[in-house]
Design a protein around this nucleic acid. Structure first.
Length: 474
DNA sequence: ATGTCC
């Protein structure tokens, strides 16, 4: 397919609509970040998404966009619920409610320095990670799981895993509404019973970081951040449970495409009308899996707090928790008319502007926190939602891969990477050498450039830059 | 991402 991105503004390119696209594509990027039209399927996926029934305004790609299952990672697509708009599991991804949580420590990097190795050892000992394996909290059975799938982070807090204040700093207060656990299959439940409080693998991590730079002191202070401060960033998702929910519902929707008369250019875009039986079933199961992901991050928070208390004599306050793999029913103006939309954000973060009514009270003046994990060798960012975002209040979620995992393994040895990172002052507690090598900083786009493009495109503004001190790798 | 294939 010939796809030529046309510049149409700073950090903004247009993919012109042509049949069977229903809307154009819009890619937010600098020329350097723009995926090539040769050998990169991400832009083709942006075009494919633009064909979905009910899609409005445009098929969007964030500056960290890269190839994914059906939809690109870093893709945003909104469909009109009341005009036969569809929901697609591929628009959320296999790791439902994968997301990021940032904690702020009441200690700075200088006083922590001498105790950092011991702290990393303890975190390495107590944070469950890697493929399979157990978590910090084993549930008793389906009945308890159903309560967790409805209550999310709040259910974990009710059981002593955290404090009520944590929930004020979680997207949706820690639980997405509309979860129906009866629509989560038995296999998904069984996979999830022993994985609450575990990182998983791939790009998931728990990092000890320090605030390196502050760009907006007032917003940083409102988020509880100051220069030199130690933080903990947790990136993980809904493990085997979310994966199973996605698999189960992709199969159902693949089989129901014909019944709804929907044709898609790629079977990985399997979908159904939001208001249909399979559409509603997916959204209710997805919400349940999303809440599992939130509870998972809540349990890992408790592990980090225990380690910080014992090994550093320090406490951890929740800055914010965001999910970047989700579909949500939201109201946005389209052509001047408020519409109920199903907003798919796959590798994209909610970025509500200042003053938005859905923001928790103490953050309403500032905007929705946007957490942008980078790589273990570079930096991560805290941003905040900006006014004038036309991508349904969405922003970038990370650096974005440029090397496939296979390419990374050809170029990088895990042991060598560990030595490189530790010689630069980043302590590493990996779960496997292979997994570490796949996540080499060189495998990712330049996160500083992604943040510049995100700001330049008007999606979000930078608040603070965080640098890694130690990483517990999934 | 994922008991890296039911």
């Amino acid at each position: 397919m010939d796809i030529t991105p046309v510049p149409e503004g700073p950090f903004r390119f247009r993919l012109e609509r042509c049949d069977p696209m229903r809307v154009p594509g819009v890619v937010f990027a600098s020329p350097d970040l723009l995926p090539g039209t040769v050998g990169d399927k991400a832009l083709e996926q942006v075009v494919n998404v633009a064909t979905l029934p009910g899609i409005v305004r445009a098929s969007y790609a964030m500056p960290d966009v890269h190839w994914g299952y059906g939809f690109p990672i870093g893709g945003v697509a909104a469909t009109d619920v009341d005009a036969a708009g569809v929901v697609s599991p591929g628009g959320v991804g296999f790791d439902i409610s994968c997301g990021v949580r940032l904690l702020a420590a009441d200690i700075d990097r200088v006083p922590l320095a001498s105790r950092l190795p011991g702290l990393m050892d303890m975190l390495g000992d107590i944070v469950p990670r890697g493929m399979g394996g157990g978590g910090l909290w084993t549930l008793s059975g389906r009945a308890q799981m159903e309560k967790l799938l409805v209550g999310g982070a709040g259910y974990a807090v009710e059981h002593g895993h955290g404090v009520p204040r944590d929930l004020e700093r979680c997207e949706d207060r820690g639980a997405l509404a509309g979860a129906d656990p009866s629509l989560v299959g038995q296999r998904a439940v069984e996979r999830g019973l022993r994985q609450v409080g575990s990182l998983g693998s791939g790009n998931h991590f728990l990092e000890v970081q320090a605030v390196d730079q502050v760009y907006d002191a007032e917003t940083a202070a409102a988020f509880g951040l100051h220069p030199g401060q130690v933080c903990v960033m947790i990136h993980c998702g809904s493990r085997g449970l979310g994966h199973q929910v996605c698999s189960d519902h992709v199969r159902i929707m693949d089989q129901s495409l014909r019944a709804f008369g929907i044709t898609v250019p790629d079977r990985q875009l399997a979908c159904a009308p939001v208001v249909s039986v399979p559409g509603r079933a997916y959204l209710a199961a997805m919400a349940a899996a999303a809440n599992y992901g939130r509870a998972n991050r809540q349990l890992l928070t408790e592990a980090a707090r225990r380690a910080f208390a014992v090994a550093a004599g320090a406490g951890l306050d929740l800055v914010y928790d965001v999910s970047h793999n989700m579909a949500k029913i939201e109201t946005h103006e389209v052509d001047g008319v408020p519409r109920r939309l199903c907003v798919h954000r796959k590798g994209a973060t909610l970025a509500l502007p200042p003053g938005h009514p859905d923001l928790p009270g103490e953050l309403a003046r500032f905007g929705h926190p946007v957490l942008v994990p980078g790589t273990m060798g570079t930096a991560s960012y805290v941003m905040v939602g900006a006014s004038g975002n036309d991508a349904f209040a969405s922003s970038a979620h990370g650096a974005g891969r440029v090397w496939s995992r296979h390419q990374a393994l050809r170029r990088v040895r895990g042991e060598q990477l560990r030595d490189d990172l530790e010689s630069r002052g980043v302590l590493v507690r990996p779960s496997s050498w292979r997994g570490l090598a796949e996540e080499a900083p060189g495998a990712y786009k330049d996160v500083d450039a992604v943040v510049r493009a995100t700001e330049g495109a008007g999606l979000a503004r930078p608040v603070a830059r965080l640098v890694p001190l130690g990483v517990v790798k999934g």
